[in-house]
Simulated assay, not measured.
Amino acid sequence: MSINNVADTGLPTHALPKLNPEQQLVAEYYQHQALLCQWFATLLAAELNETTLQAYMKGDAAPLLDGLASIDELSESVTAVQNAINGLSALAQPRLELAADFASLFLSDARHSPAPYASLYLDDGRFNGPSFQRMQARLTAAGYGVDADFQEPADHVAIMLDYLAESYRRLALDPTPEAEANLALFVKEELASWLPELASRAQKIETASAFYPTLLTLIAAYFYS
């Protein structure tokens, strides 16, 4: 995870309280949203290690992708990601080549790569601008801080997705209308508003595998579905 708890939130950390059937459905929905956002965050926070890569190549990502494919608007994007995963076995050194793709896309100079920071897209290319400040304020208000090992600003896409995952987990426990509205506004204005451009820029970078460009296209489409 790219964020961690830095304060006692007062929320329970174990099983959900006893719920009626309708409440259970709502809780399960938000838990599933949290799972997907956490997965996306993990994929964009760091390059895949050998264990995870081999697991994906053996089909371990299929359950999550199959679930996304059931959404009509996402089926094409899901197929592209699955095809990219299937094509990894054709690479001479899949992990190293994917790591190089990750660096080219996310770690290079922003003038030559689709840097994964909200400020670049929402603040006229100004890093650590208002978008960063708003995200930092959200993390502080929620009792989170950026993990010391993840040396990135608060408006990095992985941090924003991690925050979203944690927020969905909180909604699973206490789905108040105000919290739901606030999170929906965050998704619409702070995340979904720039992900398509990030995905579009990624398509223009030459990579050994289509994995990351197709993944970004899927993530962008997911928040518009």
Rank of each mutant, 00 (worst) to 15 (best):
Ala99Asn: 05
Asp123Glu: 12
Pro63Gln: 14
Leu96Gly: 10
Asp149Ile: 01
Phe132Gly: 00
Phe150Tyr: 12
Ser119Ile: 03
His14Tyr: 02
Arg201Ser: 10
Glu28Gln: 15
Glu22Gln: 13
Tyr212Arg: 11
Asp155Arg: 02
Asn49His: 12
Met135Ile: 00
Leu122Phe: 02
Met57Trp: 08
Ala142Glu: 15
Ala41Met: 01
Pro94Asp: 05
Leu218Phe: 02
Gly143Lys: 06
Leu216Thr: 01
Pro17Ser: 05
Phe186Tyr: 06
Leu35Gly: 02
Thr51Pro: 00
Thr217Val: 03
Arg134Thr: 04
Tyr56Arg: 06
Met57Lys: 11
Thr217Trp: 04
Ile3Thr: 02
Thr42Glu: 10
Ala100Trp: 10
Val157Asn: 09
Thr42Arg: 13
Ile219Thr: 06
His32Ala: 12
Ala141Thr: 04
Ala62Leu: 09
Glu97Tyr: 07
Arg138Lys: 09
Ser119Asp: 14
Asp109Thr: 04
Asn4Pro: 00
Phe211Trp: 08
Leu36Gly: 05
Val146Asn: 09
Leu96Tyr: 07
Tyr222Trp: 08
Ala172Gly: 15
Asp174Ile: 04
Asn20Cys: 11
Ala220Cys: 07
Asn4Gln: 14
Ala202Ile: 01
Gly87His: 15
Gly10Thr: 07
Ala199Cys: 00
Ser119Met: 09
His112Asn: 08
Ala141Val: 07
Thr42Gln: 15
Gly59Phe: 07
Gly129Pro: 02
Leu122Glu: 05
Ile205Tyr: 08
Val26Lys: 13
Ser70Cys: 02
Leu105Met: 04
Glu22Phe: 10
Gly67Tyr: 14
Ala118Ile: 08
Pro213Cys: 02
Ser131Gln: 12
Arg201Leu: 09
Glu47Gly: 11
Arg201Phe: 01
Pro21Ala: 08
Asp66Arg: 10
His14Cys: 02
His156Cys: 09
Gly125Trp: 15
Tyr168Glu: 07
Ala172Arg: 11
Glu178Ile: 12
Tyr30Ile: 00
Asn20Gln: 13
Gln38Leu: 10
Thr214Glu: 15
Gln136Asn: 11
Phe106Cys: 06
Ser108Trp: 09
Leu105Asp: 00
Arg134Ala: 05
Phe223Tyr: 11
Ala90Cys: 02
Asp109Glu: 05
Ala137Asn: 05
Ser77Arg: 03
Asp72Phe: 03
Phe106Ser: 06
Ser77Phe: 06
Thr52Phe: 08
Leu105Val: 00
Tyr144Lys: 07
Ala84Cys: 11
Leu43Ser: 09
Leu215Trp: 05
Phe106Pro: 06
Val26Thr: 14
Asp124Val: 07
Ser108Asp: 11
Gly67His: 15
Thr51Trp: 01
Ala118Val: 06
Phe132Met: 11
